[in-house]
Structure formats: C-alpha cells, structure tokens
C-alpha cells in the first residue's frame, strides 16, 4: 500500500432503517473490522435513516489532526443516494471538497462498483453449495427491480454478464422480486438439478429473510410469531431445500460478506491512487 492513512478519516455511508437493525449491521461490522486494523486515524459510519446521520458526520473528524476524509458509500450502485442525497447532506461539491478549515473530503465510488463483486458472488455460491458441480448448477442473482431510482439493476446485470462470460455455470440469470424475470419463477427459469440464489443486496432485512424465501417457496407466508432474527438463522441454515425435484441453495445478502471490509479499504486506495496519478501526470506535464 503506497498511501499512509494515519491522518485520514474513513466515513462509511449506509442506508439504515427505522424499522430494523439489519440494514446498518454490515456497515457497522465492516467499520469495526477496519478500525481493528488500525489503518485510518478514525473510522466512522453514518446513515440516511439511522443515527448518526450524514449531517452528524459533518461534525466528526474534528479531533486528532485528521487532514482528509474518505467517504465510501456502502451501496450496490451509483444512483439517487450517491448522486443526490449523499452530496447534498454531506455538502460535497464534487469528487474532492475542501472545507473552510482546510480539511479535504474525498468522495469514493460505491462498494458495488468494485471489480471484486464478481469474485465475491462466485465465492458466495461456492460456500452455500459446497461440492456441487458448477456444470449442473444455475446461479440466480436477485436484484432490486429497475423501478427504483438507481442503477442497481444495471449493476446486477453487469455481474451476471461477467459470470456468464466465465462459462463455468450451466446458467447464470438475473431475477427480481417484483418484475420479470421473477425470482418466484425460478423453477421455470432453470433446468439444472441444482439452483443457487444470491441476493445482490448490501444488507439482509425483510427482503432476504422473508420476501425472497416466500417467493422461492421455501417458506410459507410469515406467521409473525418467530422474530426476524430467528427466521433469518433458519432460512439460511436449511440448505439445500428440496423443491420441484431440485436442490435449491439460498444465500444471505452479498453485502454481509466480511470481505466487504477489504472492498471499502480498496475503494479508498483506488481513489488515492487516481489522485496521485493525476498529480503525477500534472507534474510530468509541467516538466515536459
């Protein structure tokens, strides 16, 4: 690693939820992991729907001589949040914003843009269905629909295309919860004996604990008696599910993968690298 981030702060921005703690849980645990590694002078999270808010984050990094703050959106794609909400709330004027006190805030790319997403999805599939031959397996990536004001569906398509190119799986498909191709049609969409389903979401929550299991047919409509947490443990523990004469393997949201901590750090490093190469080129230009 070329850069020293001892006088830099890291701010992970997540969506958060007013209804359950699952939405912010991955951001908090990635932050704890990165804090343990001692790379940055300070590591903080902030959220749209939870505390601390992005507005609160404006008051952070005032202690300990933090000169630069790297803002990493823990989002699957560019979209309304990365392009409108985060810059507005954090008062960012572009990729780099200098505050009155001279502190510089760098706006990095969302984690979902990172090239290792493809590898992480493959890893997830391998972990959830160990020893199952890929040639007998269909891999279904579940995304939010395209009706949302973001590019997460485009990002999911890009990942599916990249995995398909590898030619390892019998089939690789995009699916959605509320629009075609529907995840509830998984048995019709596939012909292989083994089917692996990985949600391309940043966090677990009602979608992955409840909605998708119901759509897959591995769970009846929620009874409301078990807590969400219990249901979550259950739903991911019972792989494979035997349905329609196939083996169905269901993974938790990709963003809960502990390796997302590495991805966050790498988004910072790649921003810093770009910046250096820009200033290097500029310097070279001056010399030439």
């Amino acid at each position: 690693m070329a850069s020293d981030f001892g006088s830099s702060g890291l701010l992970i921005v997540g969506h958060g939820s007013t209804v359950n703690p699952d939405s912010s849980a991955p951001s908090l645990s990635h932050a704890a992991e990165i804090r343990r590694r001692g790379i940055f002078g300070d590591v903080q999270c902030c959220f749209w729907k939870e505390e601390p808010s992005m507005r609160d984050a404006l008051l952070m990094f005032q202690e300990g001589g933090i000169k630069e703050v790297y803002v990493v959106p823990n989002f699957i794609s560019e979209g309304y949040f990365t392009q409108t909400v985060i810059p507005r709330e954090l008062e960012l004027s572009g990729r780099t914003t200098e505050r009155i006190d001279g502190q510089v805030w760098n706006f990095c790319e969302p984690v979902g843009n990172h090239r290792s997403m493809t590898e992480l999805l493959l890893e997830r599939a391998r972990e959830v269905a160990p020893g199952v031959p890929e040639s007998e397996m269909s891999l279904l990536i579940v995304g939010h629909g395209t009706n949302l004001n973001d590019n997460s569906a485009i990002a999911a398509k890009r990942e599916v295309e990249a995995i398909r190119q590898l030619g390892r799986y019998a089939a690789v498909l995009n699916t959605y919860m509320e629009e075609a191709p529907l995840i509830s049609d998984w048995a019709k969409l596939t012909t292989t004996p083994h089917v692996v389903v990985v949600p391309f979401f940043i966090a677990d929550g009602l979608h992955s604990y409840e909605d998708i299991p119901v759509l897959l047919g591995i769970e009846a409509a929620p009874s409301g008696s078990a807590s969400e947490r219990q249901r979550a443990g259950e739903v991911f523990r019972h792989n494979p599910h035997h349905l329609h004469g196939r083996s169905l393997y269901y993974a938790s949201a990709i963003g809960t993968d502990a390796r997302f901590a590495d991805v966050i750090v790498e988004q910072v490093e790649s921003f810093a690298r770009d910046q250096h190469s820009i200033s290097d080129n500029f310097a070279r230009g001056l010399v030439a």
């Binding site: 850069s3 020293d4 001892g6 006088s7 830099s8 001692g38 002078g41 300070d42 005032q62 202690e63 300990g64 001589g65 933090i66 000169k67």
Partner: peptide
Amino acid sequence: MTESVPQQSRQSAAD
C-alpha cells in the same frame, strides 16, 4: 508527506 497520528490523540480534546 503525511504525518501519522496515533489513535490516542483524538481523545485529548473530547474526553
């Protein structure tokens, strides 16, 4: 050149 700041120093003002 960036100078490295030990974690502890961020406490001084706040705590």
